[in-house]
């Protein structure tokens, strides 16, 4: 472990198509917003260096296709994740209802070692739309769902207005790091060399 100065945290963003996954990622990493991001086909990721408490870590944020039909790809992309971000659109009820499916699908495909305690973070996005007038999922309802799932942290965000995005990702990084550290303790080094989890120094530069 000593060879690895920097920790790489793998974060997966999931949620229905059009809820703003790509926008959130780009707002956080590149501080840019465009309402013309194309629908994500397959998957892509961006990386960002972040300071979490005293540690400098690299967050590898994976953006995936939002249509559930492509979920079978997940097995390749979710593996080795340290945190999963579930995004819904506060203006679309269905996208909130689907959080359950996304969460379960993730746990099945990523098969983390400790599913009960695997860190999720929920983001209710697009709070800016129509001044909040077209909102159909209340904050209360969302928080209740998060509490029922074991106290998942919840943030209301607007990728467009850059509202709460940094705070949300700080939390995501923190939770991912917690998960990372715990796994390091439990897993012997020989397993930790696992290809997809620990990239070589050259592997995390993009």
């Amino acid at each position: 472990m000593s060879a690895r100065k920097r920790t790489l945290l793998k974060v997966i963003i999931l949620g229905d198509s059009g809820v703003g996954k790509t926008s959130l990622m780009n707002q956080y990493v590149n501080k840019k917003f465009s309402n013309q991001y194309k629908a994500t086909i397959g998957a892509d990721f961006l990386t960002k260096e972040v300071q979490v408490e005293d540690r400098l870590v690299t967050m590898q944020i994976w953006d995936t296709a939002g249509q559930e039909r492509f979920q079978s790809l997940g097995v390749a992309f979710y593996r080795g994740a340290d945190c999963c971000v579930l995004v819904y659109d506060v203006n679309v009820m269905k996208s909130f209802d689907n959080l359950d499916n996304w969460r379960e699908e993730f746990l099945i495909q990523a098969s983390p070692s400790d599913p009960e305690n695997f860190p999720f973070v929920v983001l209710g996005n697009k709070v800016d739309v129509d001044g909040g007038n077209s909102r159909v999922v209340s904050e209360k309802k969302a928080k209740a769902w998060c509490a029922a799932k074991g106290g998942i942290p919840y943030f209301e965000t607007s990728a467009k207005e850059d509202f709460n995005v940094d705070a949300a990702f700080q939390c995501i990084a923190k939770n991912a790091l917690k998960n990372e550290t715990e796994e390091e303790i439990y897993l012997p080094d020989t397993i930790d060399v696992n290809a997809s989890r620990v990239p070589k120094a050259s592997g995390c530069e993009c």
Binding site: G42, A43, D44, F45, Q60, A76, A195, S196, P199, K200, S202, G203, C206
Partner: peptide, 14 residues
């Protein structure tokens, strides 16, 4: 040469 792995390869291709 750059020993790309799944993630770096995907990024490269994208």
């Amino acid at each position: 040469d750059e020993q790309m792995e799944f993630d770096t390869l995907l990024k490269f291709i994208n």
